[in-house]
Write a protein that binds this DNA or RNA. Structure first.
Length: 550
RNA sequence: GCCUCCGUAGCUCAGCGGAUAGAGCAGCCGCCUUCUAAGCGGUUGGUCGCAGGUUCGAUCCCUGCCGGAGGCGCCA
């Protein structure tokens, strides 16, 4: 009996109690099933009686009694107790609970997938860096969390597309070209230019590959440096992200928005919706109609389109490509964009609550030897994704960033997350996985096979705990998707790893010495395999490897 | 001034209205002849920023205040 099965049983019990006239109320749409913190309270608990007390006008405990009486009729339910103001504490009988292990093993790598978001087509846009330099710490957070979010949304049944918006248009590109040219010629980098260490190296590479660039006149030279630098930096970003395990379905160029006519189409569409107006020779979008604090310029009086015009066109282009929901993952410095992006959706006639969602990633700081590693150009300590991965490894970086909600500021201790010990949650979870794999190998050597499964033998308290934890996984994944909080998967895995370790200490899977193989050994092997499956599926959702040996 | 996020153990942080508020680290004490000790058990540590409100019940929701981070351009 999985938690979903139990909810079905509870709903049926509520329905029968109502039909029997015990109280009058509607059967609730949603029934909340909890895992009590204190295992003595039962395997599961529900507050459904407390919820129904008010609408039915009956005391909570009376409602609870009526539901409990019905629920006890259900085969598979061992006991139902009423506690406190009217909680139902439920114990599932061992053979029924043990069935979770079989379900997990049978479903294998698809265990945890649900259809809670089935039918929705979601565009997840993240990182979207300028192609003018290396990816830094802020990008790294989204490279990990955005990718994990996309995986979690997919697991919940959504049709997900990952997208990287290339900011390849605008004055920062010219500043980039001018900086490269200056570096190549040994001149001073312009004040508004790029001062990173990578600039001279990149300039030298461009000159080496295209010596003829030095023959061009100044203006053409800036253009040429800009375009070559763009090409190389974009390739570098793609390679870096690929090595990090984050791949995109679409790399979308801002320039393409303009060359493809998407911007004109967007202006036409917004005009048709009646939210455009002209003032002081500029063209404005009346975003204040929809919660923005000021209207925004689309076309400047000098005839240039603003970045905001690209934003509007880009959003509409995504919608025209068939996405029901556009998710934007932005850095904390962009949080002022939330209202205006939502206003774009509203101005276009969309529902800003349903079609667009903006998540803000707060700042990440890194401590090394107790000191903050600063983003300082002068000190040469620019923290790039590559630096971070070199220092800690892909798994540790991805996991460390994925186990926190992205909307809270984060401080990571480099010394801690690079330590290969239990201090480090990623190793704790990976070790649990490796341990289950080791048991599977040893079981194979002694000849234990999964031919017999006797769930009622799984009666130890650590086995009950492990089974209920395994049963939670699909709900955790669905919740992580719904709330856009992949960190819930990481926290769950840490709990599960601890539950596995405690079981492993308490219960032997493989017989000692020359003891005979019993059904208990075989059945425990099922539980071990089920746990391995969930640890592996969960780590996969975070883009972290699940090693078989450590 | 306005907007967003944050304030929970010495530190880093979980906890989308439920029971005695949790984890890891740091500190202290134990457990390896047999399935991975990268593990397990025990122990120390809290006015959940403050004050009201809503509720059977608030760390969680609402209001105000205090403190911290960030954002408020015909820049990109």
């Amino acid at each position: 009996m999985t938690p979903a099965d139990l909810i079905t049983s509870i709903r049926a019990a509520v329905s029968r109690a109502i039909d029997a006239g015990a109280f009058t109320a509607e059967v609730p749409d949603e029934i909340v099933l909890d895992r009590p913190k204190n295992p003595e309270h039962g395997d599961y608990a529900t507050n459904v009686a407390l919820r129904l007390a008010k609408p039915s006008g009956k005391p909570p405990r009376l409602v609870a009694e009526a539901i409990a009486a019905e629920l006890r009729q259900d085969p598979g339910i061992a006991s139902v107790d009423i506690a406190g103001p009217g909680f139902l504490n439920i114990r599932v009988d061992a053979s029924s609970l043990g069935g979770v292990a079989r379900t997990v093993v049978q479903e294998g790598s698809s265990y945890g997938r649900t259809d809670t978001l089935a039918g929705s087509k979601i565009n997840v846009e993240f990182i979207s860096a300028n192609p003018t330099g290396p990816l830094h710490l802020g990008h790294t957070r989204w490279a990990a969390v955005g990718d994990a979010l996309a995986r979690v949304l997919s697991a919940a049944g959504a049709d997900v597309s990952r997208e990287f918006y290339i900011n390849d248009r605008g004055v920062q590109m010219d500043a980039f070209g001018a900086s490269l040219r200056a570096a190549a010629l040994g001149a001073a980098i312009p004040d508004n230019g790029y001062h990173g260490d990578y600039i001279p190296a990149l300039a030298a590479q461009i000159v080496a590959e295209h010596p003829e660039i030095l023959e061009l006149d100044a203006e053409k030279q800036v253009d040429a440096f800009r375009e070559e630098g763009y090409r190389l930096q974009l390739a570098e970003q793609r390679r870096t992200l690929e090595d990090f395990g984050t791949e995109f379905d679409t790399w979308y160029s801002e320039r393409y928005l303009h060359t493809s006519g998407a911007v004109e189409r967007a202006l036409d569409q917004l005009k048709a919706q009646g939210h455009l107006y002209a003032d002081a020779d500029a063209l404005w979008l009346r975003t204040t109609d929809f919660g923005d604090d000021k209207d925004r310029v689309l076309l400047k009086s000098d005839g240039d389109l603003t970045y905001f015009a690209s934003d509007a066109a880009y959003y509409l282009d995504k919608r025209n490509r068939g996405f029901d929901l556009c998710v934007y993952l932005l850095g904390a410095d962009h949080h002022g964009y939330v209202n205006r992006l939502k206003a774009i959706a509203a101005c276009a006639g969309d529902d800003p609550e349903a079609n667009i969602e903006v998540l803000i990633g707060q700042l990440v700081k890194i401590l090394r030897a107790g000191q903050e590693v600063r983003l300082s150009k002068r000190a040469g300590e620019i923290v790039t994704l590559t630096d971070f991965v070199e220092a800690a490894g892909v798994d540790a970086v991805r996991y460390s960033l994925s186990r926190y909600p992205s909307d809270s500021p984060l401080t990571l201790d480099l010394d801690l997350i690079t330590r290969q010990s239990s201090d480090n949650p990623v190793f704790y979870v990976q070790y649990a996985h490796a341990r289950t794999c080791s048991v599977i190998r040893n079981a194979g050597e002694v000849g234990i096979v999964l031919d017999t499964f006797v769930p009622e033998l799984l009666t130890h308290e650590t086995e009950t705990a492990l089974l209920t934890a395994l049963g939670d996984f699909p709900r955790i994944v669905a919740q992580a998707a719904e709330l856009r909080e992949p960190h819930r998967v990481a926290r769950y895995l840490e709990e599960l790893a601890g539950t596995l370790h405690r079981w492993y200490e308490a219960c032997r899977i493989i017989p000692r010495g020359d003891e005979e193989i019993t059904d208990l050994n075989r059945t425990r092997l099922w539980l071990n395999v089920a746990t391995r499956t969930v640890l592996s599926n969960g780590l996969h959702l975070l883009g972290v490897s699940a090693p078989e040996r450590m």
